Amino acid sequence: MKTTTKAALISALFLPGLGQLIVLKRPARAFMFIIAALLALLYLLSTAFTVASQIADQITAGTLPLDPQLITQQIEATNTGPGGNIAAVVLLVAWIGSFLDALLRKP
């Protein structure tokens, strides 16, 4: 297997930039992808935990019944702003960009 293919697969399956770091030995490019992906993922997880905590508090307080449909409606009604969409796009671009960067690297 070519090193570029191996690096692309590692970046695609595990973490964007990991293939550049481990296989291709390109730390500057690797950290560019890794940092962007981790920051976006951290934002998405933080937002998800905040919403989950708010809903759990409502259930515990008795203001929200333990009904899956009502809980789903409450989740969908939660407005987190455009930050979640931006973070998702950044994560997707980092993942695809890392894969293509490793795959299309010239030896």
Rank of each mutant, 00 (worst) to 15 (best):
62 G>V: 12
70 L>H: 04
46 S>I: 04
75 I>G: 03
44 L>H: 09
1 M>R: 07
49 F>T: 09
13 L>S: 09
64 L>V: 06
62 G>C: 10
63 T>G: 11
26 R>E: 10
85 N>M: 13
29 R>P: 02
64 L>T: 01
46 S>W: 10
81 G>A: 03
15 L>C: 11
72 T>K: 12
99 F>A: 07
15 L>S: 02
25 K>W: 00
89 V>T: 15
76 E>Y: 06
26 R>H: 12
89 V>K: 13
1 M>E: 05
75 I>V: 15
96 I>A: 15
16 P>R: 10
81 G>N: 03
28 A>E: 12
54 Q>T: 10
95 W>H: 15
98 S>C: 06
40 A>I: 07
4 T>P: 00
18 L>Q: 03
63 T>M: 06
29 R>S: 12
18 L>A: 12
8 A>Y: 02
102 A>S: 15
1 M>I: 08
72 T>F: 03
52 A>V: 05
5 T>H: 11
74 Q>S: 06
68 P>W: 00
7 A>E: 01
60 T>Y: 09
102 A>I: 04
101 D>Y: 10
37 A>S: 15
99 F>Q: 14
101 D>Q: 10
78 T>S: 14
49 F>S: 11
96 I>P: 04
22 I>T: 09
24 L>I: 09
16 P>C: 10
2 K>I: 07
36 A>Y: 07
67 D>T: 04
55 I>S: 03
69 Q>E: 15
8 A>L: 03
72 T>V: 04
99 F>W: 14
2 K>D: 14
64 L>S: 04
30 A>E: 06
27 P>L: 08
90 V>R: 01
6 K>L: 14
39 L>G: 06
9 L>H: 04
25 K>N: 14
92 L>Q: 08
53 S>Y: 10
56 A>K: 13
30 A>G: 10
70 L>S: 02
47 T>S: 15
59 I>R: 10
93 V>D: 00
84 G>F: 06
33 F>N: 05
3 T>W: 07
64 L>G: 05
2 K>E: 13
23 V>W: 02
69 Q>G: 05
33 F>A: 05
57 D>N: 14
33 F>K: 08
95 W>G: 03
37 A>C: 12
75 I>C: 05
1 M>L: 09
29 R>H: 09
29 R>Y: 05
74 Q>K: 13
68 P>F: 00
67 D>G: 05
21 L>R: 06
65 P>N: 12
20 Q>I: 03
57 D>W: 06
50 T>A: 14
86 I>N: 07
58 Q>W: 03
94 A>S: 15
37 A>L: 05
102 A>H: 01
